Computed example of a mutant assay.
Amino acid sequence: MEPPESTAAEKIILQWDSTASEDARERMIFTGDRQEIDRYLDAVDELQKAMSSATLSDSSSTTSSALQIAMARLEDEFRNILLSHTCPVEADWLTESTQLEFASQEFELKEEIAESSSDKQFEHQESNSSSTSSCYKTTSSIREVDLIPSDAVYDLRCIAERMIAAGYLRECIQVYASVRKSAVDASLKKLNVEKLSIGDIQRLEWETLETKIRRWIRAAKICVRVLFASERRLCEEIFEGLGNSADDACFMETIKSPAIQLFNFAEAISISRRSPEKLFKILDLHDALSDLLPDIESVFESKSSESIRVQAVEILSRLAEAARGILSEFENAVLREPSKVAVPGGRFIP
C-alpha cells in the first residue's frame, strides 16, 4: 500500500525541514515577511487539528512526522528570536531611569528613622519576619522596562502557544530560560554583582566588604525593582494563560540562580563574625533590604518563588539580630572596663 499523499500543510512544514534542505538551514522563517510566517503557523495549526481529531488507527504517520519536524523548527526559531533580541541591560541607563524613584524611597526611609529608634525598628522587623506580605507597606517603586520589542514578544508567544499545545512545554521553557538567564547574568555582571560563595565573601577584608556593600545596595535596588520585575513581566507576556503555570516556571528557571547569587551576599554579611566597625554598614544593609522587601514580595509573589521571599525575610531578621548583638557586646565591653579618671601628673585613678 502506497503512503498517503502529503497535505498542503505537510508540504509547507517539509519545505522548512532544516535536516533535509540547505536553504532551510540557512534561513529563518521569522526573519522573513509576515505572510510567510503566518503561512507556516497556519500549517502547524492544521497539523495539530488533524492530529487531535484523528484516532490512533487512522492518524497519518506523515502528519505525525511533519508535526515533529515543525516543533523542532519552531524551537530553533524561538531560540533565534530570543538571541536576536537579548542583550544585558545597561547599568547606566537603569540607574538613570530609577534614580528619582530611589531618591524618593531613601528620603522616606530617613524620615521613618528620624521618627523612631533603631531598637523599635528591629523589634518591628523581627515580630513580622514570618508574616505575609500584607504586613509590609505597598510598593509603587517597581519600574518595568521592555526587555524585548513587542513584535518579537508577539512572535515568541505564537510559537510558545503551538509548542505547548503539542506537548513541548519542557523544551520551550528550557530554551527560554537558557537564553534569558545568560542575559540576566550579564546584567548582574555589569552591576558588579559577583559570583562569590558565602565563604568567599566572609574571607574578604572588611575594608573591601565596605565598598562591596555600597555597590550591592545600589545593584539590589536595580535588580529587584527593574531587572527581575521586567523579567517577570516578559514571562507573563509570552506564557501567561498557556497552562501549567508556564509563566511562573519560566520566570523561576530564569531568575532563581541570579536571585540566590544576589542575596547570598547579604546573607554572608548577616552571619559573619561580629565586630563594632561593622555596625553602621550592617545597619545600611538592613535598611536597604527592609526598603526592598515589599518589592521582593511583589516580584516573587507566586508559590514557586516562595523560597526567594523566605530567604530575604530571614536575612533581614539576621541583620537585625547582628546589629543588636554588636550593640550588646559593645555595651558589655564598656561595663567590664573600669572607668579611669585622669589627674594632673598624667596618672589615672580607677
Score class of each variant (00 low, 15 high):
Asp58Ser: 09
Ile173Asn: 00
Gly32Glu: 04
Leu67Phe: 00
Asp119His: 13
Arg27Asp: 03
Ala186Ser: 11
Ile164Met: 03
Gly167Arg: 02
Asp295Lys: 03
Ala103Trp: 07
Ala312Asp: 01
Met252Phe: 08
Leu335Trp: 14
Asp185Thr: 03
Asp45Thr: 02
Glu5Asp: 13
Gln105Met: 05
Leu242Tyr: 06
Glu77Thr: 01
Ile164Arg: 05
Asn264Ser: 07
Pro350Met: 04
Ser245Leu: 14
Ser65Asn: 11
Cys250Gly: 03
Cys158Met: 12
Leu74Cys: 03
Phe122Leu: 12
Gln105Glu: 12
Asp151Ser: 14
Glu26Asp: 11
Thr7Cys: 05
Lys189Phe: 14
Glu210Thr: 09
Ser304Leu: 13
Pro344Phe: 15
Arg180Lys: 10
Asn264Tyr: 12
Lys120Ala: 05
Glu231Arg: 00
Ile148Cys: 11
Glu126Ala: 09
Arg79Pro: 00
Gly32Trp: 07
Val184Ser: 01
Asn244Phe: 12
Glu36Pro: 15
Arg162Glu: 00
Glu321Ile: 13
Arg324Ala: 02
Ile148Lys: 04
Cys158Thr: 15
Ser133Trp: 12
Ala320Gly: 13
Ser65Glu: 11
Ser270Gln: 02
Leu279Ser: 10
Phe330Gln: 15
Leu293Pro: 06
Ser328Trp: 14
Ser197His: 06
Val341Leu: 04
Val44Leu: 05
Ala8Tyr: 01
Pro88Phe: 02
Ser141Trp: 03
